[in-house]
Amino acid sequence: MNAFLKIAVLCSFSVYAWSSEVKLEKVTLENDVPAIERGAETLMNACHSCHGMKYIKYRDLLTFGMNKQKVDGWRADQSLDAPLLAQMSENDAMLAFAKVPPDLSLMTKARDGGVNYLYSYLLGYYTTAEGVTGNHIFPETKMPDPLGISGAATPEQRTEIQGQARDIVSFLAWAADPHEAERIRLGYYVIAYLLALTTLLYFVKKQIWSRLK
């Protein structure tokens, strides 16, 4: 028992030390509608069977400007106001992975490293000489390589998969913070207004204090 504890502690320390040393790849997201729509499409094919996004409704995708036919294809007979729940039931997921795959609505905000973490994780799969698949970023992961990066043979294939990963992460970043674009746009106006106001206040202050001399 004691030996087991020691090994467990050592493992957890080494995992901690190791995981903090892993370098995340930096990703530059695209936030235009086509890129995010491509990301949604890849996600629907590669992730949606196991992962849900309970805070996103099909109607949100339409409101954002995605193609209606595509959205209708994804939702099939579900209502427009239905959330994007996983196709696999939680029971089946427990049987398959002994763990319910996490909801993806907030994923880019829920991990240290954010979008870079997710991008690196999706591309972090590799195959050992024994033919076992592992992941550099999250070694304990139960998720099988969703984009097939570990089996990519040619540089062209790798580039294509990198593009898919970037699109998925772009979509997830939008889903985690759908008002981001609006927030930043409003932010410029607010800052501009405050700069003008503060400049005026500065001159009023100077003028009022000049009476003292």
Partner: peptide, 25 residues
């Protein structure tokens, strides 16, 4: 008033700029 009301308001302007950078960006 008016010396410190205006000085405080000017300071408030500067503070709100920093605050808004955090809130919006």
């Amino acid at each position: 008033h008016p010396y410190f009301t205006i000085k405080d308001l000017y300071g408030l302007g500067v503070f709100l700029i920093v605050y808004s950078v955090f809130v919006f960006f």
